[in-house]
């Protein structure tokens, strides 16, 4: 073993927030998607994959409460080849795996870059959790928090770290608003109060625009990352 070797080249990096891989190239941008159960995280990931896969090289890491369910949904939907989708097992605590102990997720993103790279983008999807779950800055470079209109139009008003601090707040399933009695204008106003200048996107994946606005935001982030 080469004890005298220079530390900066060829050694696996210890801390993965480093923007560079061991060979000196810039690593993929990592975007986290979190939010409560059933808000449409996996559907948004699937739609983003379809929107972006022809223009850039991307992969997905899922963090399931029960192992592999979200990964298997993505596989069934065939949004990406199977080798570009990895499931991390979270021991019944998905928020731990994306915030307090990110080691398994870091291994997953690094393995994806090693095995199917080079990659421009990795989407890290959290397991459905509560409003307090956010991604560690050691794991992702930006995060999207996905809520939906059916979960109650008071969620933006209640705030919480996800709603307040996420780089992008997505209010999903706007097509359902009339049926569940949610007031979109009120949600927008509350979100503005909580988030000041941070962006909010209202989307319905069943509409023609679909995920386009979120995809545009991802492209912007990517342009800034590679600049």
């Amino acid at each position: 073993m080469h004890l005298g070797h220079d530390h900066s080249h060829g050694w696996p990096s210890a801390v993965s927030a480093d923007a560079h891989r061991p060979d000196g190239t810039r690593r993929a941008l990592r975007i986290g998607l979190g939010g409560p159960v059933g808000s449409g995280k996996t559907a948004t990931v699937a739609a983003l994959c379809r929107a972006l896969r022809d223009e850039l090289s991307l992969a997905v890491v899922t963090n399931d409460i029960y192992t592999r369910e979200d990964a298997e949904f993505l596989l069934r939907e065939a949004v990406l080849p199977p080798e570009r989708i990895t499931a991390v097992e979270t021991g019944a605590c998905p928020h731990t795996a994306i915030r307090d102990d990110i080691s398994a997720n870091l291994e997953a993103v690094e393995d994806l870059e090693d095995e199917v790279g080079p990659l421009a983008l990795i989407l890290v999807e959290s397991g459905g959790d509560n409003l307090t779950a956010t991604f560690s800055k050691g794991l992702v470079d930006a995060q999207i928090f996905v809520i939906d209109v059916a979960g109650g139009d008071d969620i933006p008003r209640k705030g919480g770290p996800g709603v307040t601090t996420a780089d992008l707040l997505v209010v999903n399933k706007t097509d359902l608003a009339p049926y569940v009695g949610s007031d979109l204008a009120r949600m927008a106003a509350d979100a503005k109060t909580q988030r000041a200048e941070l962006p909010v996107v209202f989307q319905s994946l069943r509409s023609e625009a679909g995920v386009a606005e979120v995809a545009a935001w991802v492209r912007e982030k990517l342009a800034a990352w590679t600049a």
Partner: peptide
């Protein structure tokens, strides 16, 4: 137990 080394996901 909070040392971030992955143990939380194993039983």
């Amino acid at each position: 137990g909070r040392f971030p080394a992955g143990g939380h996901a194993h039983s």
